[in-house]
């Protein structure tokens, strides 16, 4: 399925699927990238099961980080959108909101597409050198494996933001406990999303379960289709 730009094993395009906001294209982008010198590039993996609200959270987080990076005309935040299907959906939405997105489709970065992910990160560092790369993992990814891969091969600092779906928590934990629990493993921050879909005692009970699965993460109850308090992003 090749309507969208895809990575090719040979003759790989320099910027397959890269969407640079209007006005930021061309040589100036590279001059600006070089202007940051060797400042550290941070990486955040956004993880969570299918439908947990990763893209909704990313839309808000992306906007927050773009503002935090300042409006000096360079790309401060780059998103790598990893989708397991041949058809990318979320990248269209992110681009429609003016965010810079690179596609990584047709495989999961924690396994079959790990090499492509590393190549993408290297390319982005070299050409853009943003403050942040935000990697939206697939809904079936193991984020800690992605973090370990990046740190072992590239050495960049990596954090993990995980989302848990309050509305489907019980069902998902019964149906696929290993994956759901592994997606919280190593998270620096956990958003219990769609908290408005359950009553307050149930949200508290789920939050307690999350704490049992991850002792260190900051845990917040949110509804990512509404504005998220920016203090949530203080872990970054």
């Amino acid at each position: 399925m090749h309507k969208s730009s895809r990575h090719e094993a040979n003759g790989r395009q320099k910027w397959p699927g890269l969407c640079v906001p209007e006005g930021l294209g061309g040589p100036a982008r590279y001059l600006n990238a070089a202007g940051r010198g060797n400042a550290a590039m941070n990486i955040l993996i956004i993880s969570g099961f299918l439908g947990s609200g990763k893209t909704s959270a990313l839309l808000q987080l992306g906007g927050h980080l773009v503002r935090r990076c300042g409006g000096d005309g360079r790309i401060g935040v780059m998103i790598i959108e990893n989708e397991i299907g041949e058809v990318g959906v979320d990248d269209k939405l992110l681009r429609a909101q003016g965010l810079a997105v690179r596609e990584l489709f047709s495989g999961c970065a924690c396994c079959s597409s790990g090499g492509d992910l590393l190549a993408d990160i290297r390319d982005i560092k070299e050409a853009i050198n943003p403050d942040w790369i935000l990697i939206e993992a697939t809904g079936v990814a193991y984020p800690l494996q992605i973090k370990e891969l990046i740190q072992a091969c590239l050495g960049f600092p990596v954090k993990i933001l995980s989302l848990a779906d309050a509305g489907r928590w019980r069902k998902l934990r019964a149906y696929m406990p290993h994956l759901i629990e592994a997606q919280l493993d190593g998270a620096d921050c956990i958003l219990l999303n769609k908290a408005d879909l359950v009553d307050a005692p149930e949200a508290d009970a789920i939050a307690a379960e999350l704490r049992g699965l991850n002792e260190k993460a900051a845990i917040y109850k949110v509804s990512a289709n509404k504005p998220i308090d920016e203090s949530v992003w203080s872990f970054l």
Partner: peptide
């Protein structure tokens, strides 16, 4: 069980 069904 549908993990998700998405379209654009």
């Amino acid at each position: 069980f549908i993990g998700h069904a998405k379209a654009y």
